[in-house]
């Protein structure tokens, strides 16, 4: 174990907190049969990984809008990155919320 923690990128503490919270909120909203600990934050949200689809994308947009006041948009050029994983979604929410 390295005693020195790696320097965290700016805002990542916030991102980590949001990531944990999002796991809970998404499990609840989508009635997923899993626990927050079982969700790999770096696994793809759609296709393999969590295996979500566009109906779920809409539900996730509601969760994110209600909990953080962040509106997801289809025309966001970064969308494929935002929805790549829970971690990237959390990072997007963290960034948008700061504005």
């Amino acid at each position: 174990m390295n005693a020195m923690a790696k320097p965290l990128p700016t805002g990542s503490e916030d991102t980590l907190a949001i990531e944990e919270e999002l796991k809970r909120l998404i499990i609840e909203a989508l009635s997923l049969e899993t626990t927050p600990e079982e969700i790999d934050a770096e696994a793809p949200l759609f296709g393999d990984g969590l295996g979500l689809d566009s109906i779920d994308a809409l539900e996730i947009s509601l969760v994110v809008s209600k909990a953080y006041g962040v509106q997801l948009r289809s025309d966001d050029a970064q969308n494929h990155r935002i929805f790549a994983s829970l971690r990237s979604l959390a990072a997007h929410v963290a960034a948008q919320r700061l504005r």
Partner: peptide, 11 residues
Amino acid sequence: KETFFPGDVLA
């Protein structure tokens, strides 16, 4: 434009 999410539709 794609209008899938509520934010898209409102805009």
